[in-house]
């Protein structure tokens, strides 16, 4: 490999945030010069291709043509989440896919957009070089929205995070015994809506921002929650901690219900299908009647 590293930047359908950050990497503080790296203006002069954004119909052929012209070692770096999974633009009609569907990609730099520090470290990693990291700007400030972290103790598996997620990055997968909550941070727009909406503050965005990877399938953070089985048919249908959390909330809000808690718990452990059976409906009606009577007396 020659010593000089020349990067050709190819922006396809993205928001250009990543491009601004690459531009920013040229600032001496980020030490791109230390790595003997330059940004060049034509693919013929370059040996590294940096792609930002997903690829749309108009960019497909252009990307292929540019890739052909890159000099060996033909390193391809996909910068930003759009270049990894198309992120929030996934499902847009002109999109044909992330760049690795069209050309081979060696390294992915997740982030939306990645900090310049992350981009520079990615380039250093690609070149097998180390950067001096003692200056204070390497740490993200307090309140930075970076990589997710689950608190397994707190998570009740309710799935609120998946519902509010702006870019469909969170999947809820019900298995045989456990519910899997899977955050694909390569698909995430780091809006932190999940953190805001989580009723138990179980999901958090940490200060960690170095998420460099060479395998697009490994960009996941997962958490497992035990599912309970229906007390009648035995089907697994709801996370155990969610029921306990709901009961705790009810007793906190209306403490007169406390003596009915066993009955309520029994009713909640029946799956939606079994609840519709006649005798169960009768039982449920009876319980509701008792509860409303208590509530009425209490109100007076």
């Amino acid at each position: 490999m020659s010593n000089k590293i020349s990067i050709y930047r190819f922006m396809s359908a993205g928001c250009n945030g990543c491009d601004v950050e690459i531009f920013e990497c040229l600032v001496p503080r980020y030490k791109l010069g230390e790595l003997n790296v330059e940004v060049v203006s034509s693919p013929e002069e370059a040996n590294v291709l940096a792609i930002t954004g997903g690829i749309n119909v108009k960019g497909r052929e252009e990307l292929k043509a540019s890739y052909e012209k890159i000099q060996p070692p033909k390193l391809v770096v996909a910068i930003g989440n759009c270049a990894l999974t198309m992120e929030i633009f996934d499902g847009g009609y002109p999109m044909v896919g992330p760049p690795d569907r069209i050309v081979p990609v060696n390294l992915y730099v997740p982030g939306c957009p990645p900090r310049p520090q992350a981009i520079v470290s990615a380039i250093a990693k690609a070149l097998d070089k180390t950067l001096s990291m003692e200056e204070n700007y390497w740490d993200a400030p307090e309140g930075f929205r970076g990589l997710h972290e689950f608190d397994g103790e707190k998570c009740i598996g309710c799935g609120a995070c998946a519902q509010v997620c702006s870019s469909k990055a969170i999947d809820i997968i019900d298995g045989n015994e456990k519910r899997l909550i899977k955050v694909n941070y390569g698909h995430c727009s780091f809006c932190a809506f999940c953190q805001d909406e989580c009723p138990t503050e179980a999901i958090k965005l940490t200060k960690k921002y170095q998420m460099l990877t060479d395998n697009r399938n490994l960009t996941n953070i997962t958490n497992e929650v035990q599912l309970i089985s229906c007390s009648i048919c035995g089907r697994r249908f709801m996370p155990e901690p969610q029921i306990e959390w709901a009961i705790k909330r009810v007793t906190e809000k209306v403490n007169v219900y406390e003596k009915f808690m066993d009955a309520v718990r029994r009713a909640m452990r029946i799956c939606p299908d079994c609840r519709r059976e006649t005798e169960n409906i009768r039982d449920a009606k009876k319980l509701l009647l008792q509860l409303s009577t208590v509530a009425r007396i209490n109100r007076k």
Binding site: N56, F89, Y93, P94, M95
Partner: peptide
């Protein structure tokens, strides 16, 4: 134009 078109209004 069109190199950055992403179909946002539809999304």
């Amino acid at each position: 134009l069109g190199y950055v078109h992403r179909g946002i209004e539809k999304l």
